[in-house]
């Protein structure tokens, strides 16, 4: 269609013209290749990105604020005989269990929903490393958040008992706390899985709300009405097996098998599929 010829080879004009015209200063000639980006730096960057937007900052701050409010509520309104650490832990733990997965969701989906990935993945072309840094970051935030919440609970319990004039009651064992930490870590992975699979903030957040708040009463009702479902529920319902961790660390081997099966089917397999697509998907 064109009258112009197509030049593919080196013509004299293309090889030396810049040097003749502009006074060639080879500032960029043959620089040594830079060293690789260490994982610790990626982790630092991803942690920073969780806090450096207004929404991110408030999400993080809300963990501390809600923990403080929940503790204050227990101090003010709980009957005297219930002012124990367990009450505080439950009150503080609920907002944590709800919010930590949201942090994990947004850490992944913001790269796509906010189109930030265009910059992130051009600076670090190995998406697997970025996502791994996000996973470790979300985990650190989750554990850190739980420690903050636990500390707020301790403070609340001390203040509450002092106001009641009773001795503080510490009725949460180390193994109870470990079980709660594990439950929340699994919750973070649920958020992470949804983020990786759906790669959209609204879709993943709705998915999270459906799984955590719509599905739970439905399966409970189903288990109450249908005995066959009640029998297999521990083997098929991830919410059910994960939820048991909030009641203390189970010691029977069968429980751990159930947790392993449901977590593999509902979390690990979709996460693997989501990651497989995520590293190959087009970033637009």
């Amino acid at each position: 269609m064109s009258t112009l010829t197509t030049h593919t080879g080196d013509s004299p004009a293309t090889t030396g013209a810049g040097a003749e015209r502009g006074g060639f200063v080879p500032a960029y000639a043959a620089r040594p290749a830079p060293g690789p980006i260490p994982f610790a730096r990626l982790l630092k960057v991803e942690l920073r990105k969780m806090f450096d937007t207004r929404s991110g900052l408030w999400l993080m701050a809300s963990i501390g604020i809600l923990a403080a409010l929940a503790s204050a509520a227990v101090v003010l309104w709980a009957p005297d005989d219930q002012v124990t650490y367990e009450t505080f832990a439950a009150a503080v733990g609920f907002p944590m269990a709800v919010l930590l997965p949201v942090i994990a969701v947004l850490a992944v989906t913001s790269e796509w929903s906010q189109r930030n990935g265009l910059t992130t993945f051009t600076l670090v072309p190995h998406r697997g490393r970025v996502v791994a840094a996000k996973a470790v970051g979300a985990l650190l935030v989750a554990v850190g958040g739980m420690l903050v919440a636990a500390a707020v609970g301790v403070l609340g319990n001390l203040v509450g008992s002092a106001l009641n004039g009773t001795d503080a009651i510490w009725d949460v064992s180390v193994s109870d706390f470990a079980a709660i930490v594990l439950a929340n870590v699994l919750g973070v992975f649920l958020g992470f899985m949804l983020g990786a699979v759906l790669r959209s903030s609204p879709a993943a957040l709705v998915g999270y709300l459906v799984i955590s708040f719509v599905l739970v009463p439905l399966t409970m009702a189903l288990a109450a009405a249908q005995e066959w479902f009640a029998d297999i529920q521990p083997w098929v319902d991830w919410n059910f097996t994960q939820g048991r961790l909030f009641e203390g660390l189970p010691t029977d081997g069968e429980y751990w098998a159930q947790l392993g099966v449901t977590t593999t089917v509902w979390l690990l397999l979709p996460l693997a599929g989501g990651l497989w697509r995520l590293v190959r998907a087009e970033v637009k």
């Binding site: 064109s2 112009l4 010829t5 197509t6 030049h7 593919t8 013509s11 004009a13 293309t14």
Partner: peptide, 8 residues
């Protein structure tokens, strides 16, 4: 569809 130096 075409490539070369601007002059060309």
């Amino acid at each position: 569809v075409a490539q070369g130096t601007k002059e060309e």
